[in-house]
Structures are given as structure tokens and as C-alpha cells.
């Protein structure tokens, strides 16, 4: 009997290829194939109530050929990386790591949810690391709120000020002595061309 081959539109096919590439690049990534749609991940997730697509549904949507819909959802950017789903999954799927993989695909292909610029925080963070070698909390916060939500800048003003007063918010970044080492490592690792 002739095998039936499911074909996807080009964009979806590219995203699927990227996805399989990603899940083969971390330990137990391919266990995603074992998903039995039990919903334990969604039940264990402390923020699934606020997601437009639940963790279980992301797998169902992937199987149905809708990766783009997953990337356009807020779900992957709502994950706080608490690993509750990962330790609960009865077949050992690395759910959190899979969501990270989807975030990387989203960043690489520049497919984001509408009016939900959470990914810019990650981008700002990596810029800080390149520049200083360490995170610069105040700079990161300012940069993020300037880029996304100006109102939040003011609503967090009191918090920021009280932290500064108690010496818990550095006004200036601390830079590595050998920041050139970090930059060299980043440049070299980037040459592998992986997302």
C-alpha cells in the first residue's frame, strides 16, 4: 500500500523542520512524540489559566500542522520556567525545554504574538550580556519599559526608588575585566549558525 504523505504549506513545513531540528538538539527532546494528550502539563502549570493556548494544546496544534498559531500565541512567552510540567509528565517529555525551543524558533523567524512584546526582554538581556558580560538590572528594566509599556515605567518608579535607596539597585553596570572573552565566545558560538 502506498504511504500517505501529509504535505504542509511551505511556511509551515519550514517551521516543522526547524522544530524537529530544535528538539533533537537537547536531551530527551524527541520524547515529544510520546505525548498522549493527558493534560497533566496544563494541570501542573501555575500560569496555564492565563494562556490562550495551554501546554497540552500546543502539542495538539503542532500535530495538526499549526506551528505558526503556537508562535502567535502568548503561551510560550508566559512560561516562567518553573519546570512543574517537566517533572509531572508521565512519559518524560521536557515540556519547558520544548517551550524554550519554540521561543528560539519565534526569535529566529521573527514570528510574535500581536501586542505582546515580551520577547524584547530576552533580546535586551542578551545585548546587556554582550556589552558588559553581566546583567544590568536597572538598564534592563528601563530599556524594556521604554520599548514596551511606558506606563509601567512610572508605576514601578516607587519600587525602583526604594531599591536604590537601600543600595539594592546599581545605577551603573558592572563590567567584566575580560569582557573581550565573553564577546569572543559569543561571536564564535554564533558562527555555528544555530537558533
Amino acid at each position: 500500500m502506498k504511504e500517505t504523505i501529509m504535505t504542509f504549506p511551505k511556511k509551515e513545513a519550514d517551521l516543522r523542520a526547524a522544530f524537529w531540528d530544535q528538539v533533537s538538539s537537547f536531551p530527551d527532546g524527541e520524547k515529544i512524540k510520546l505525548c498522549l494528550q493527558c493534560g497533566t502539563c496544563t494541570g501542573a502549570c501555575p500560569v496555564s489559566y492565563a494562556m490562550d493556548i495551554t501546554p497540552r494544546q500546543t502539542v495538539a496544534l503542532f500535530r495538526a500542522g499549526h506551528i505558526e498559531r503556537i508562535l502567535r500565541s502568548r503561551t510560550i512567552w508566559l512560561c516562567a520556567s518553573c519546570y512543574s510540567c517537566t517533572v509531572r509528565c508521565p512519559v518524560g517529555i521536557k515540556v519547558t525545554d520544548t517551550l524554550y525551543a519554540l521561543k528560539r524558533i519565534a526569535m529566529d523567524k521573527k514570528i510574535y504574538p500581536a501586542r505582546f512584546p515580551v520577547h524584547t526582554l530576552s533580546r535586551s538581556f542578551t545585548k546587556n550580556v554582550y556589552k558588559y558580560g553581566r546583567n544590568y538590572e536597572l538598564g534592563l528594566g528601563l530599556r524594556y519599559f521604554f520599548a514596551t509599556d511606558f506606563v509601567k515605567l512610572f508605576s514601578n518608579f516607587g519600587f525602583g526608588l526604594s531599591m536604590i535607596r537601600r543600595g539594592r539597585m546599581g545605577l551603573f553596570p558592572k563590567k567584566l575585566k575580560r569582557v573581550n572573552q565573553i564577546r569572543a565566545i559569543i561571536k564564535k558560538a554564533d558562527e555555528f549558525g544555530e537558533a
Binding site: 538538539s25 520577547h119 526582554l121 542578551t126 565573553i182 565566545i185 558560538a189
Partner: peptide, 18 residues
């Protein structure tokens, strides 16, 4: 230096680990 935190993992995995 910075460990990369949850942020780098969302952008480029191999750089984060490196």
C-alpha cells in the same frame, strides 16, 4: 560572567551554554 539565565535560552541555546 552572567550564566545566561532563562533569557539566553530563549534566544540562542549554544551561545547560552557557551
Amino acid at each position: 560572567n552572567c550564566c545566561g539565565a532563562t533569557m539566553y535560552m530563549s534566544v540562542k541555546k549554544i551561545i547560552g551554554y557557551a
